Simulated scan of single mutants.
Amino acid sequence: MTTYNIDITLSTTKKEKPQADKLQFGKTFTDHMFIMDYALGHGWHDARIIPYQSLSLDPASMIFHYGQSVFEGLKAYLTEKDQVLLFRPDQNFKRFNISNDRLCIPHLDEDFALEALKQLIQIDREWIPTAAGTSLYIRPFIISTEPYLGVAPSTNYQFIIILSPVGSYYKEGLAPIKISVESEYVRAVAGGTGTAKTGGNYASSLKAQQQSGDKGYSQVLWLDGVNRKYIEEVGSMNIFFKIDGEVVTPMVNGSILEGITRKSILQLLRYWDIPVSERLISIDEIKQAYADGKLEEAFGTGTAAVIAPVGELFWNDEKMTINNGQTGPVSQKLYDTLTGIQTGTLEDPFGWVVEVPSEVESLLHSNVITR
């Protein structure tokens, strides 16, 4: 097993922590951050935890011009027994490297990345909120930093982790949201970057998202970019439908993100013997199921929202009200079970949760200073 060195500089100036009922998603950040550098020929090096601060980058840094970046999102939870739990973090760092590969970014040592994250969480442990529905959101990301205007993979990168105490992603909480089906714009196609978690995918979705928001809808449901009829995913979530007793979700087809929450939901449904399938689903099929009274539930899944019931779909100037605009029983059971496992109040039969110990000893040698 390889041993890594990590330098830690502790902040002597502590930020004021927001009250739990004032938490917004992604607005507040903890006292410290993790950074590691990459240089061609030298590899990943200079791992460090430092006080949270601004970055200083050359204006010619390639991230500003060609968008070579990837990111992940996961959460830490504080249990009633004062344990800190992570939910399937190995899957996040595995997917991180899949995204790295697609964006020509050097791979990370996944074991080290996880241990470095644990160290950072230990230092900022007091930032983990304890109120129901809150958590510590974790954002690992890589940016290209070489100052060069040629179109080519960068030779320099920074891997950074920041932490943010958060409440619900949607202001509605678990209350059903309204979604508009997008017919004009396209998010991704097979062979593109839809399967990578890269910033450009989200930037290209903003126009449709803005227009949808102006009409009172929380999110956009994307259709495929070739036929313009097959359902793919919501802007920040995968999507599921319960039709005549069966739960269906779009299959992974090379243009949608393979969500970790999605994967967990599929496993839970099969564990409960609820009929579930991954396949092509057209918007016409959904409309017909609605007309026939067979569209029983719809919900989105993702790290930020966990489960987001869908109470209304808007397509072709028609509104489809699902389950009378109420949270369905399968959506509720999935939310209760998944959050229960994540927060340690329910048994984890799958080995999904990973505890952050009081000290990290396995992979890190740390040099701690205070300033």
Rank of each mutant, 00 (worst) to 15 (best):
P89C: 12
D284I: 03
L221E: 03
Q326E: 15
F299S: 04
G43W: 05
D90I: 00
Q288I: 07
A203P: 11
I281R: 06
I98V: 10
Q119N: 12
L40S: 15
E182G: 04
S135V: 07
T321N: 09
I274P: 01
F240W: 05
I281S: 08
E184I: 12
K333T: 14
A190C: 11
P51A: 09
L85R: 09
T155N: 10
K229Y: 00
N201H: 10
N367Y: 04
S56E: 13
D348N: 03
H42R: 14
K14L: 15
F141R: 02
P275Y: 07
G194W: 03
G173L: 05
T195F: 00
K287Y: 07
A190Y: 01
Y66E: 02
T195G: 00
R279C: 10
R371Y: 04
L221C: 13
H365D: 14
P176Q: 07
M251I: 05
A132P: 01
K287C: 12
L120M: 06
T79I: 09
Q267T: 15
S180Y: 12
L257R: 07
V252G: 05
D58K: 06
D317C: 02
I286A: 11
A289H: 10
T345A: 10
I231F: 02
P153N: 11
E172Y: 02
S205W: 01
A113G: 14
I341S: 11
W222N: 12
G43C: 08
P140R: 14
F71Y: 14
P329W: 11
S331F: 11
I143A: 08
W127F: 06
V252C: 10
N323A: 15
F87T: 10
I256P: 03
N316I: 02
T370W: 05
Q210C: 09
